[in-house]
Nucleic acid binder design. Structure first.
Lengths: 226, 226
DNA sequence: ATTGCAGCGTACCGTACCGTACGGTTCTGT
DNA sequence: ACAGAACCGTACGGTACGGTACGCTGCAAT
């Protein structure tokens, strides 16, 4: 009969969560090469034996780090409240800015680098884990919002996945890969970037009745210099 | 006085090119873990001593692999011939499809995985090399085409870099990262994807006079099932 | 108090890899 | 033909890491 702590319901005990946190910090700081079993044990003040008892293997530790991190940032899909184009636009912008912030986060970058570096031609175990826990949530959330916008007559598209993919491309562009490759990329604020991307998306997928969300043409938009 | 072979003008001798080719094949097949100095020497039928004499270091070998691969796929920027929107559109579609094919190539994926996996928080040497040799060429080429289109009154935008970034996002979306993470992603033909992306881009950045390149709305476009 | 267990710290083993050294071989220039 | 260099194949040293074993401490339950 074990006393289950509050955090244990996420799959790991509180102590294990602390160890995973240390491992993530170690990974963020020094990359995969710094993520040795001895290093994790030393940083977390635990023994290597416990690591192997809890996670079975080094790969098990890596997988646990991914699932643990994804469990932390889980945000429940906010129920779509009021209708109307401004509300839809604001919600889209909020999600887009949040997406950009998440993708640029230290831990996200480190975990993506880890999964990509581990990926082989045939087997990409961690990569699939990252896609499952990191991409699917944002896709379902954005897709639901797009569907509701279409049901409300604000958006026009046939294939939700296609519309979502376009939206994702407009928001993220190649910033993610550049960040993964170590590019600093000028510090444009995520909010500004999100707003431009959503307006472009609405120009492409907005319903005909509402000709455009913004009076100015997309091509002539002055990018915010802040 | 060494007899310089034809390929030696690229910076490496023919023998060294063969060795780099073997190294690339090894990397594609087994990932970074398979790219050991002994393995490269065995696969290329050369000695480790020669490897260290030619490339100095393991990192030197990795860097040489990147520059060598980029030197192979160098395509000279075709001079923009005739004007007119159909010609511009066709050229954009061609470049876009080529970009998609290159990004999905085995060697490109393997080298990007290598550079990303090696990247640390502060130092990302290979990453910068990949960005320099892999991204800048396509950016300059596409940007020049966009500028010529604007000069010809076919496109309307203020910031070329901004327009290029949007175009890149519309073309690639998140396919690159998905490929790097090991996702198979349905076999949509690059040509079809390129055509849709370019039409979307022209809807956003086409000059006002030519209201749109395609009569059908972008949102209702039936994706080619081929 | 006693007993058992979970876990910490350390030591240890086998292995794999980077980088270097050495003998033998092939090719080139004279 | 001959000298020299370049190079191949292999062997070796040093190091670092993954995984396991062992002694010890503290806590929890009986």
């Amino acid at each position: 009969m074990e006393q289950i702590s509050a955090a244990a319901t996420d799959g790991y005990s509180a102590r294990q969560n602390a160890v995973l946190e240390s491992a993530l910090a170690l990974l963020v700081e020094g990359g995969e090469r710094a993520l040795t079993t001895a290093g994790v044990a030393r940083a977390a003040n635990c023994s290597k034996e416990s690591l192997y008892k809890w996670f079975g293997d080094r790969d098990g530790l890596l997988a646990a780090m991914i699932t643990f991190q994804s469990s932390k940032v889980r945000a429940e899909p906010r129920p779509v409240g009021e209708a109307g184009l401004p509300a839809l636009r604001a919600q889209l912008i909020g999600i887009a800015a949040n997406l950009l912030r998440v993708l640029a986060g230290d831990v996200s970058i480190a975990l993506n680098r880890l999964a990509i570096g581990q990926a082989r031609r045939d087997a990409a175990d961690l990569g699939h884990l990252v896609l499952e826990h990191g991409r699917r949530p944002i896709e379902t959330r954005l897709s639901a919002l797009l569907d509701s916008g279409r049901d409300g007559g604000l958006l026009a598209f046939d294939d939700t996945r296609e519309a979502y993919a376009t939206l994702y491309g407009l928001i993220v562009r190649d910033r993610h890969v550049r960040l993964l490759l170590g590019d600093s990329l000028g510090d444009q604020s995520p909010a500004a970037r999100a707003e431009e991307a959503i307006d472009q998306f609405l120009r492409l997928y907005g319903a005909e009745e509402t000709t455009g969300p913004a009076p100015e043409r997309a091509g002539a938009g002055n990018e915010r210099t802040g």
